Computed example of a mutant assay.
Amino acid sequence: MKLMLVAFFIAVLISSLLIIISTLFSKKTILDREKASPFECGFDPKNTSRVPFSIRFFLIAIVFLIFDIEISILLPLGLITNSIPPIFWMGTGGLFLFLVTIGLYYEWKESTLDWIT
């Protein structure tokens, strides 16, 4: 019991020491006006809020979210391999990938993915 208590106190001491050292070394001594100003999504909050927003940026962000959600839908398919017949989950995953690929092809043909128009 004493050995566990000593090990616990040593672990707390070492972690506290590391936190203190990292806090001391991470302080920035040079303050830059640009780095100290708030920055959010490329907009300067001190100017007018009625700045035109790029619809291309919005569409690229939506396409990214679609493919991000696609990955989160397809990842669990590997976990259900023992409970569902492989032809079913492979067919479902293939159909889903096919539909997303058709959507990507449509976005490409509409030139939504081009930054320069």
Rank of each mutant, 00 (worst) to 15 (best):
L31R: 13
L24R: 15
K27R: 09
S49N: 15
T81R: 15
C41G: 01
K109A: 11
I84P: 14
A11E: 05
S26C: 03
S72T: 15
F8N: 06
K46F: 15
E107R: 04
I62L: 13
L65R: 04
K109L: 13
K28F: 04
F67D: 03
D68T: 09
G94Y: 09
I19Q: 08
S26A: 12
C41L: 06
P45V: 07
F25L: 13
T101R: 01
P86Q: 08
I80Y: 09
L99S: 13
A36F: 10
P52Y: 10
T92Q: 02
D114G: 01
D114K: 02
K35T: 04
K2Y: 11
I66Q: 05
I14R: 03
S72L: 14
T23D: 08
I60A: 04
G94V: 04
T29V: 02
S72E: 15
S15I: 14
K109H: 02
L5P: 00
P76D: 12
T48V: 01
Y105N: 02
L59V: 08
T23N: 11
T23A: 09
I84L: 14
S54L: 05
W89D: 01
I73W: 08
A36I: 10
T23E: 10
C41T: 04
T81N: 07
L79D: 15
D44K: 06
R50N: 15
L5I: 05
W89N: 06
F88D: 10
F39I: 06
L95F: 15
F53T: 09
K109S: 07
L75I: 10
L113M: 15
S54H: 01
K2V: 13
S26Y: 09
I87Y: 11
S83M: 08
F39D: 05
F98V: 12
M4E: 07
T23Y: 03
V12N: 00
L95E: 05
I73A: 06
G94P: 03
